[in-house]
Design a protein around this nucleic acid. Sequence first.
DNA 1: AACGTCACCGCAATCGTTTGCAGTTGGTTT
DNA 2: AAACCAACTGCAAACGATTGCGGTGACGTT
Lengths: 343, 343
Amino acid sequence: MKLGQATIKDIARELNVSSSTVSRALKDYPGISDETKRKVKELADKLNYRPNAVALSLRKSKSFTIGVIIPEVVHFFFSTVISGIEEVAFANGYNVILCQTNEKLSREQSSIETMLSNQIDGFLVSFSRETTDFTHFKKLLDLGFPIVFFDRLPELENTVNVTVDDYKGAYDAVSHLIEQGYKKIAHLSGPQNLNISKKRKEGFLDALKNAGIKPEPDWIIECPYGTEKESFDITTELFKNPENRPDAIFAHHDIVAAGAMMALKNLGLRIPEDVGIVGFSNWQFSSMIDPPLTTVSQPGFKIGEQASRLLLEMINTKKGQSWEQKNIVLDTELLIRKSSVKV
Amino acid sequence: MKLGQATIKDIARELNVSSSTVSRALKDYPGISDETKRKVKELADKLNYRPNAVALSLRKSKSFTIGVIIPEVVHFFFSTVISGIEEVAFANGYNVILCQTNEKLSREQSSIETMLSNQIDGFLVSFSRETTDFTHFKKLLDLGFPIVFFDRLPELENTVNVTVDDYKGAYDAVSHLIEQGYKKIAHLSGPQNLNISKKRKEGFLDALKNAGIKPEPDWIIECPYGTEKESFDITTELFKNPENRPDAIFAHHDIVAAGAMMALKNLGLRIPEDVGIVGFSNWQFSSMIDPPLTTVSQPGFKIGEQASRLLLEMINTKKGQSWEQKNIVLDTELLIRKSSVKV
DNA sequence: AACGTCACCGCAATCGTTTGCAGTTGGTTT
DNA sequence: AAACCAACTGCAAACGATTGCGGTGACGTT
């Protein structure tokens, strides 16, 4: 073979025994003499034998590999999730294969196909922004195929999910702004087909309601792409009327917040004196910008760990036996920095 | 089978032909009647047949999967590289499996082992900070196993590499500072066992030399960890003497630069008026901080594409035939922002 | 009638590993 | 001496797909 990797057959030939014996000797099966075991193990060691994982996969219809489907690795949040996933996967002898969808449904579907034909043992998925039809997941779930959803939740029954409490995170963030004395709070929201966007918006609305503030519909604007540029433009537009403008912004995530901050500075408005601002996700840069951005931190690493652990559990329960619906919700943490502290 | 995935055998049984015939029919081999081909294809379609990639790997000793080894996904640079890699891999029908080393040599080695036992077709590697001994790569290369190194280059002969021109990037950056009128330039360097760190330092030194400026040894400080905190402390220390302090900093990368900026602000120094600063890598946040950071942008996506393309070439040349040494060096680009423009 | 040709298809081995079952020893028991 | 039981070990099928080689039958040709 290409790599000269020794196989069980090589060991068997050399030792004049059958491959069955070698296989059993290596795994300390009873019924193999200590003498043979010793010889086999020694030679295996000497030849630097490693079992061929592919042959194993074929035999066992199990690959010890889990597939991760995410929109984009460049998102700080997702890359921390990946780290969490890898950590527990590795610790349990599983490999991780990664597919970015770039927010494209077609890419999501084809990734699933190729991963399936690679006998993947289960999926960890945060689906694309384009995904509104979940039948490709439904089919697999009905067959008892293990899937754990994280961050973004599908509109399906009986799924196993790991998310953060977006509602509460948003609620806390907005309440904090209100406590600081801001009253005219705008919301730059995320794409409304995503559950997380809806939840954050709800949290925003309820926090206002709870403080007796009536929300201004014009000040709730969707940022479908979530780019810096987009929110720069939207914010500039939002603040163009000096007579009646917001005095604070709750942004769907930090990039959006950063774009807004640049727009505000550009307009000569001071943060946090004139306008307070809070983001979401605690991106890496959030503490480094000026002023440092108050944000809601999501425990990405923990999400990855949890999701991974749940998936491995599902993989290791006997098939046929279906798993119960589960909804793990992890707490967010409000990181108060300068951008929202008036005094 | 678990997923009810149809196999060639299922089709064969249903149609009362042999699996050989099905296999050949599906691939339009000559010597199969059009009638049979039609029937096979129809049924395959109906059963939603997908070839079992694992069985194929075993048969062909080829998995159509490439392994990527990087220090950490959370680095913006690496995640853009990954995107580039995935793009061309996917376009060519290859899968990507990802392993983070977290800068640990042991993790690097074990990842390689498990990937090898998964019949991986080749490696794309940016090795860990701990890696100073390259025999684990050397062994594979000697066996004709395809590896492309990127960003960080090993001390080995005849490897295929993709990097950016760190020397020139640094040289340009420092020359720019000098043009802006800065004269007392410090360098917060990277770990000196990495080639890139050395190259950037050389570029720094040569730019000074070329301008007739003698470097101050005390102002070249290594930041082995490259964290914000580390460079904050180092910078604070570096500027503690008001009598004789630098008037500019060339940082090994943007995080280091950001830490330095915070230290400077903390000391009441203005950027760029009192101190100019340039980073490296164009991290995502660099344009969002205040002032926006001048930096040397590395074409991460392109690096990924190039490396991936080279690797696929190597994989597809007949084995036994060794590949020639190659050193692709991509150009950096100096992004001039406010942090280094005096006027 | 005997032979050759051609189109079409199946057998069986192969990749590396696992595993139910059966076989071969040697020794012990009646 | 026949029977029996351990203790070891090997055979062969299986996972799913590929492929060299050989086989079958229907024709046409002499």
